[in-house]
Amino acid sequence: MEPPKDLVDVNFTSVMEFVLLGFSDFPNLQMFLFVMFLFIYVVTLMGNGIIILITRTDQTLQTPMYFFLSNFSFLEICYVSVTLPRMLINLWTQKRHISLSACATQMSCVLMFGNIECLLLTVMAYDRYMAICNPLQYPLVMNYKVCVQLVSACWITGVPVEIGQTCQIFSLPFCRSNQINHYFCDIPPILKLACGDIFLNEMMVFTVAVLFVMIPFLLILGSYIKITSTILKLPLATGRAKAFSTCSSHVMVVTLFFGSGIITYLRPKSKNSSRTDKFFSLFYTIVTPMFNPLIYTLRNKDVLMALRKLLP
């Protein structure tokens, strides 16, 4: 069976749009996938929206930990809204075209929000480190002004780097194909379509991944080594259990997000890695934002009490 004319290889001078293949290799599951991803999107918006609402309105949650959590939930809403609406439109209409400018914008936003999430998770780990390892200094060090500055620094740092990287990638000529074997415009499938030498681009991708993924992950790991050591020295078992409980939700989110991100961007690439990239991308772009509210509410008594106050 021959592919449609608009999906065949084209000369780079005529490539004005790409085709997001997404999950087109499952033609009989298109409606099922649409319903499933629509459900995920609604749950993600509602769950993270509720967290933002209760952390801003409940007086018992006016602490640095919940300030960072509300910002993290807002970031998750932004993150999932970059990919899922386009995927839903493609599944519903079966029209998978995306212009170069729209593709570049989507890639820039996905990378930007991803980098900000890495930095914000690191800040949240630092907050837990200060609360558990330096409890006497915690109120002075983690005051409201410092919290706002830390969140602002995450956003300011993440934006310009990814705008520059996206401009660098989309300055390449594309002459192999206009088919992107992915459900959103991500770096690995885009670089596969580029002509010429992409070594500099690949090194840039690796460098940014190390700076925004690997280093934050190592900082978080170092923080939790110190936190674990401090908790184990606590004399009471109840104190140890409470301290571990306040950290466990963050650890679960970090494991999901960083694990899939590191596998996607830092593992050696092969010719048949597209399906693997798609699978792991689902975790850090869709699964983590959806489970974030559940992870933080089901294991947190303060949040559960605030929810009971909110819901009659």
Rank of each mutant, 00 (worst) to 15 (best):
I156T: 15
I156Q: 13
G158W: 07
G158I: 10
V159T: 11
P160W: 06
P160G: 09
E162A: 00
E162H: 05
E162R: 03
I163R: 06
I163W: 11
G164I: 10
G164V: 09
Q165K: 04
T166D: 13
T166Q: 08
C167Q: 14
C167P: 03
C167Y: 11
Q168L: 12
I169D: 14
F170C: 14
S171N: 15
P173H: 09
P173N: 12
P173R: 09
F174D: 12
F174K: 08
C175L: 05
C175Y: 03
C175S: 15
R176K: 12
S177Y: 00
N178A: 13
Q179E: 12
Q179F: 00
H182D: 15
Y183E: 13
C185T: 07
D186S: 12
I187S: 04
I187W: 01
I187C: 02
P188I: 05
P188K: 04
P189F: 02
I190L: 12
I190H: 00
L193Y: 01
L193M: 12
A194L: 11
A194C: 14
C195E: 15
C195F: 01
I198S: 07
I198C: 05
N201V: 12
N201M: 14
N201R: 06
N201T: 14
E202Q: 13
M203R: 13
M203V: 12
M203Q: 15
M204G: 05
V205P: 00
V205C: 03
V205T: 04
F206G: 04
F206A: 12
T207K: 07
T207P: 06
T207R: 07
T207M: 09
T207A: 10
V210W: 01
L211H: 03
F212T: 09
F212P: 11
F212Q: 10
F212Y: 13
V213N: 06
I215M: 10
P216T: 13
F217P: 01
F217N: 02
L218R: 03
L219T: 07
L219R: 06
L219C: 10
I220P: 00
